[in-house]
Nucleic acid binder design. Structure first.
Lengths: 209, 209
DNA sequence: GCATGTGATTTAACGGCGTTAAGCTGGTGG
DNA sequence: CCACCAGCTTAACGCCGTTAAATCACATGC
């Protein structure tokens, strides 16, 4: 009898359906505003049923975040195929901004929710499920290390970690500011992608030797 | 009889004590984790007593945010006393970063909580209680407008709004990233103030004519 | 000087949240 | 055929923000 396997498959399927429902609602309403009961309703379940597949709301969130980290990593892998390290930095930055604008709630989960991303990593501080070449920060870091080693930056910009943090902070600031204050009319928002391009241009121009 | 005035004064006093307790707990535990009951406990009140002085938890938050906006505005006024507009931009940026690092929970309230800052402004989009010269964003915007008018920036950086957003995003990204991922060991954090200085230096160098 | 009333505060309660415990039920393995 | 157990339900707990009703203190009007 392959009935054991079939049940396992069905179990995995409902797990997936729960994840899908949770993702939809998290993205639509935000994490805080999404209730376990609402997730269950969408599958015509009751709330406690979810607890047979996931420990709690947070582990649901964690699993989704893990998927998103993978997606961003894949995107960065694709963007990282440019030979020139400085151009690669700019492309990574622009890709990051587009990812944030296209998936605002995923972005919120990944980079604006304290403790959400942390939990998918082991105690040694290394990514648990990710190999280095699909870890977005690592990809940026290598690009910058290459640029530094090639002597592309002037004095004061020789520390790849510091430069990585500068670049990441710049694009993250743009995406997250726009996310928090998009509705506020007291600031005249300019097109974010163009702003990102100018910002990255200015940054690399200011750092280049 | 000045008994009416005395009662008003006492009422104002308890209002202030409630605000103080709320601020302490918001800063210590975060807004979400702070309960109305905990705020009341700290004053040896019961939770419903607060509702005689404030409509709800959100209006408590709003009042504190308004105070903080004023404090940041005052800081920016003081930092804005430098004649050279470009140097002023950098000083404002550094002041902003220090403000964020010194008052992380206030910063979180002001710039990382959607809808918190919005509510202290009128429907016309102008600050309600603030005059322009104490509005932090306006102060940055004027500095940049002056720099642009003086022809300090090269082509592509002639729009004061876009440049304002670039500068704000850069420093905000640094502060908020550090706030969200400070505990994460997979990133080797460099001293934030120095990083901010380098970032601002690179930005202005890249924008200057 | 005593009734009146009003504002501040309390207790009790409501509905909703995440979560846990206990009961039901139908297919599987012995 | 029966005993079991996974997967679901209903019921309930303790917490939250908030509201309603009762209590209490005290200044005011007669």
């Amino acid at each position: 009898m392959g009935s054991k396997e079939r049940r396992d498959r069905e179990r995995e399927d409902t797990r997936g359906r729960i994840l899908d429902a949770a993702r939809t609602l998290f993205v639509e309403l935000g994490v805080e505003a999404t209730t376990m009961r609402a997730i269950a309703d969408r599958l015509e379940y009751t709330a406690p049923a979810i607890y047979h597949h996931f420990a709690d709301k947070e582990s649901l969130l964690r699993e989704l975040v893990t998927q998103d980290v993978g997606a961003l990593g894949l995107l960065f892998q694709r963007l990282g195929e440019v030979a020139d390290p400085v151009e690669r930095m700019v492309r990574l930055g622009m890709g990051y901004v587009r990812f944030g604008l296209e998936h605002p709630q995923h972005y919120r989960l990944l980079f604006m929710t304290p403790g959400a991303k942390k939990e998918i990593r082991g105690e040694n501080g290394c990514a648990v499920e990710e190999n280095p070449e699909s870890d977005a920060y690592a990809i940026l870091h290598t690009a910058i290390t290459e640029a530094v080693r090639a002597g592309r930056f002037r004095e004061g910009y020789g520390d790849p970690d510091r430069v990585s943090q500068i670049c990441w902070a710049a694009v993250h600031g743009l995406v997250s500011l726009h996310m928090v204050f998009a509705e506020d009319s007291w600031i005249e928002w300019r097109d974010v992608e163009t702003t990102a391009q100018r910002m990255l241009d200015a940054l690399v121009a200011g750092m280049e030797a």
